[in-house]
């Protein structure tokens, strides 16, 4: 099984982040998990981390509906930043609106759109398909 050095969860839902952390913990592939309550804080951290590519995440789980800077706005900023590392970005949302799904396809950095709730199985597949 692949080893994932760092995963970021960008979501304001504290219960969800708690649950995700617990699930990812059971998968046993994640060395390091960081939580950001909104897109803005994640972008700020990216700006710092890009100077040291080692500290950049391998996987990002991104919620869409958040205060301050939402998932879409985060994606707009994310695509502007040139990074030396391949990052697998997953949207994790409870939206089943086709409009959102179609919009997500326009972002080439988005690996997949996962609909909440997600379980251990999806996390394992995510780890499986990660190509460092």
């Amino acid at each position: 099984m692949n080893k994932i050095n760092t995963a970021w969860i960008i979501d304001d839902d504290k219960i969800l982040t708690y649950v995700l952390q617990r699930i990812m913990g059971t998968v046993d592939s994640f060395a390091n998990i960081e939580i950001f309550p909104n897109g803005k804080e994640a972008i700020n951290q990216l700006a710092v981390a890009r100077k040291n590519p080692e500290s950049l995440p391998d996987i990002i789980l991104l919620d869409l509906n958040m205060p301050v800077m939402d998932g879409w706005q985060f994606l707009d900023e994310f695509e502007k930043i040139n990074l030396d590392k391949k990052i697998s970005l997953y949207i994790v949302s409870s939206s089943i609106d086709t409009h959102d799904h179609n919009k997500a396809k326009k972002y080439k950095t988005v690996a997949d759109f996962l609909i909440k709730p997600i379980g251990k199985k999806q996390i394992e597949q995510m780890v499986e398909s990660h190509q460092p």
Partner: peptide, 10 residues
């Protein structure tokens, strides 16, 4: 859905 999703996962 977001609440129910959380319910299921918990």
């Amino acid at each position: 859905r977001s609440h129910i999703g959380n319910f299921q996962m918990l």
